[in-house]
Design a protein around this nucleic acid. Structure first.
Length: 795
DNA sequence: GGAAATACTTAGCAATATGTAG
DNA sequence: CTACATATTGCTAAGTATTTCC
């Protein structure tokens, strides 16, 4: 995917105004990493393409006799079905959001917008006045107290609003309504998503109930509400107020209650034998379990990955023991186990829907109590409450550890974080106990354990994306990115000046910042050699950037998830020259920016704007682009056409951020199917045209293809049919085109992580597009905090 | 001051749910 | 209703950035 970067694509036109040299760049030292030796470490570029770490499972492996058996060997669940004590919590404090709040909110948003027109220095003053400990001066100041972060990010209006509301937060109260089943059955099928969501996840206040009826009644008649007024009030845009962050330092909560986490069921041996040199071999359950993981991956790409296979074999051999009959994977035939796996899957598929449903409900019942936590009296959804099951580590790209056994996690690996007064979750494995119980209210995790594949890192259990904590920090993230908008001019001027600095560190900072701004590159932290060899901006190697003449730089490297970044860009002459200089006297494998790392870069960015870090540029670039494209490209038209505009804007963002996906294995067949249908229709169209001609001359249709031809005899009817058919053809052609167009572009990632939802919500309101056309149920939940944004909101 | 530890955010793909054509 | 296609959700790996430790 190579895309030119012309200036039209810039969020803000580059202006080259020379600016005062307000910023002295940090000149920190870096551990010298330049190692101009081993020529063998020069690899890449050619062998890189295939290593995308994709695992497409080709379906047509071995043929499996489909068994009739309906009984499913299913998980031996851990049934500690004690009543959830979460349910018993109820919050009585009344807190009703009423329309007044809405008005206030709108007003505030306006004032916020106004703010953008106010000169920077004045704004900063305003913010500072507001901050608890006002810092006397302006833009080059880095904020020392993280506590002030929120305050400094929010406009005065906003802040006032937040404190006003603080006492009457209606965010998410607990109510009896939170039982999903109760109501779902009769009602929810034909209720808009957002309502269902409200019933399920967040509890609902009185207002929503009345509105709910309103919406329901209206629904059948007019799916798209006509007047803006109605639209604004529509339940779909119902927002959840965020709690004000306590302002109390690091403290995140006062009370914190949850039920711990779920462990996967113990391994249930199947006894199917592997063939070694053609002879069946009996395995112990432990050996069999690992062999089964491997066998089940038989028809995936991992089987072409030598690292994967080697790592698997090494770990498996340890389990087998030195003197085991099995001395070699090559002589192992996993087919019997593979067949068994396929058979199990088939059995599952063959189950009647009633059985499936019963099974699902059983699971739901067991998991229900783990799904919720109560934070300061507010019920919140938990995210990943299921402990990751053991398996073979599926590291992406050329991960040196891919294929290793990822061991089973038990309670004694797990540290629980919970409120002091909350009951400690019952340990779900009899006889075991938690590794540690902690009451750390400076962090938001419920549980964590050592990552079994990476000694240095941990796995965490957090609240779900819909939680207020996450909503709050999401909002802060976007506010910070919006703040960058007013600093970006200065920042660009500063780094432009830095391009020619005689201080190499400063020069490298300038060029790196330019790349991050212009190309939306990631920061690029240092990685150790236990990980796949990927890079970001600060870790670019000399061979990743090629000067191609005419000021053109060709970028070619593997970024996060070993996704290839390939892009040729025309840069400014000083940048081009600087790159040539940085590459001089270096070997492939050496760091392009040898005087830089992310902490040096971020320390520098913080001098330019409070709390600025490299990743903010990506958020800024993405959100700005969406806002810009939407506002430039939206025209009158029906909802479908507007949604297309949105998707187009979304696509541009995805391209900027290099969000890729692998082409689905059925893509080409789907395309040819579509084009076949189009051909068919075109043949029909041709025939119709002839028939029309003949009908006008009073002749009978050429081909008596149908019985119902009588009605098609008159020219009007044929004309109508022609119109219908060609419309159908056009639609299919459009569909085919977009399908082809988007086959390698992932739109979801930016929508979830980079695009300020308020842009989308405001655009929907302005254009009378139902928000559900843009956000799925989970995204509506995640973005609840953004739903009441003013329609005039601009990023 | 630098490495390591920590906590949280971002990422693609697999599994599952839902929609739709036949 | 079934089968297939598409959309959504779940899963967990892989990043960023800050804090802590030595």
């Amino acid at each position: 995917m190579s895309h030119e970067f012309d200036d039209e694509d810039r969020p803000i036109t580059f202006k080259r105004s020379s600016m005062s040299k307000s910023n002295e760049l940090h000149s920190k030292r870096r551990k010298s990493t330049s190692h101009c030796h081993d020529g063998q470490s020069y690899k890449k570029t050619s062998d890189v393409l295939s290593s995308n770490g994709q695992c497409s499972s080709s379906q047509n492996g071995k043929v499996v006799p489909s068994a009739k058996a309906t009984s499913v060997k299913c998980s031996v669940g851990i049934s500690t079905a004690s009543t959830s004590n979460l349910k018993t919590y109820t919050r009585f404090s009344s807190a009703n959001s009423n329309s007044t709040n809405h008005l206030k909110e709108d007003k505030c948003e306006n004032s916020e917008d106004e703010e953008d027109k106010i000169p920077l220095s004045v704004r900063m003053k305003m913010n500072n006045d507001n901050a608890k400990q006002a810092t006397p001066n302006v833009s080059t100041l880095s904020v020392k107290r993280p506590l002030d972060k929120l305050d400094s990010l929010h406009s005065s209006g906003k802040k006032a609003k937040l404190s006003d509301l603080a006492s009457s937060i209606n965010a998410k109260q607990i109510s009896a309504k939170s039982e999903p089943h109760a109501e779902e059955e009769e009602d929810d099928d034909d209720i808009p998503l957002s309502l269902v969501m409200n019933n399920l996840a967040t509890s609902v206040n009185n207002k929503s109930f009345s509105l709910k009826k309103f919406t329901k009644v209206n629904k059948g008649a007019a799916p798209f509400v006509k007047e803006k007024e109605k639209l604004k009030k529509s339940e779909h845009f119902k927002s959840t107020k965020l709690l004000q962050s306590s302002g109390d330092g690091q403290k995140k909560w006062t009370t914190f209650v949850h039920n711990g986490i779920i462990f996967p069921p113990p391994y249930n041996p199947h006894g199917v034998k592997i063939l070694y040199k053609g002879k069946p071999v009996t395995l112990t359950p432990e050996q069999e379990e690992v062999a089964t993981w491997f066998a089940d991956m038989w028809d995936t790409e991992y089987m072409q990955n030598e690292i994967f296979k080697n790592n698997f074999w090494n770990d498996w051999q340890k389990l087998l023991g030195k003197n085991h009959v099995i001395q070699n994977v090559k002589d192992c035939d996993f087919t019997p186990i593979y067949d068994w796996c396929q058979n199990e899957k088939d059995k599952k598929k063959q189950m009647s829907s009633a059985e499936k449903k019963a099974l699902r409900e059983e699971k739901m019942k067991q998991e229900e109590k783990y799904k919720w936590a109560i934070v300061d009296g507010v019920k919140e959804k938990v995210g990943n409450f299921r402990v990751e099951p053991p398996g073979l580590f599926r590291g992406r790209g050329k991960h040196p550890k891919t294929g290793h056994v990822k061991k089973r996690i038990g309670p004694n690996d797990v540290i629980i974080n919970i409120g002091k007064d909350a009951p400690i979750p019952e340990c779900p494995i009899p006889g075991a106990s938690w590794k540690e119980i902690r009451h750390d209210n400076t962090c938001s995790w419920l549980a964590k354990w050592r990552d079994p594949t990476k000694a240095k890192s941990s796995k965490y259990v957090f609240l779900a994306a819909s939680s207020s904590w996450n909503g709050q920090s999401d909002k802060e993230k976007y506010e910070k990115a919006r703040m960058l908008k007013s600093y970006i001019g200065n920042i660009r001027a500063a780094y432009t000046k830095g391009f020619t600095s005689i201080d190499i560190t400063k020069q490298q900072i300038a060029v790196a910042t330019y790349f991050i701004d212009k190309l939306a590159l990631r920061a690029g932290n240092e990685k150790d050699d236990e990980e796949a060899d990927t890079v970001g901006c600060c870790t670019l190697k000399v061979e990743n950037v090629m000067a191609e003449g005419h000021n053109k730089l060709k970028f070619d490297f593997l970024g996060k998830d070993s996704i290839k970044y390939e892009n040729t860009v025309e840069v400014e002459l000083p940048v081009y020259n600087a790159i040539l200089k940085f590459q001089k006297d270096k070997c492939p494998g050496d760091a392009l920016f040898d005087k830089l790392d992310t902490s040096i870069l971020n320390a520098h960015l913080k001098e330019l704007m409070p709390n600025l870090t490299a990743k903010v540029f990506r958020t800024f670039n993405a959100s700005f682009t969406l806002d810009d494209k939407l506002n430039k490209e939206t025209k009158d038209g029906d909802v479908a056409e507007k949604v297309v505009v949105y998707q187009h804007a979304n696509k541009q963002v995805a391209i900027i951020c290099n969000h890729q996906r692998s082409v689905s294995k059925s893509h080409s067949s789907q395309i040819s199917k579509l084009s076949g249908k189009i051909d068919e229709l075109q043949a029909v169209l041709k025939e119709l045209k002839i028939d029309l001609d003949r009908a006008r001359k009073g002749k009978p249709p050429l081909k008596c293809s149908g019985v119902k031809n009588q009605s098609n005899l008159n020219p009007e009817a044929i004309e109508k049919k022609i119109a219908q058919t060609s419309a159908k053809i056009e639609k299919m052609q459009r569909d085919m085109h977009t399908k082809e167009d988007l086959k390698t572009v992932a739109l979801g990632t930016s929508k979830i992580n980079y695009l300020d939802p308020r842009i989308s919500v405001a655009w929907c309101k302005r254009n009378e597009v139902p928000i559900e056309k843009i956000f799925s149920k989970t995204l509506l939940e995640k973005f609840a905090w953004a739903m009441d944004v003013d329609p005039d909101f601009r990023f």
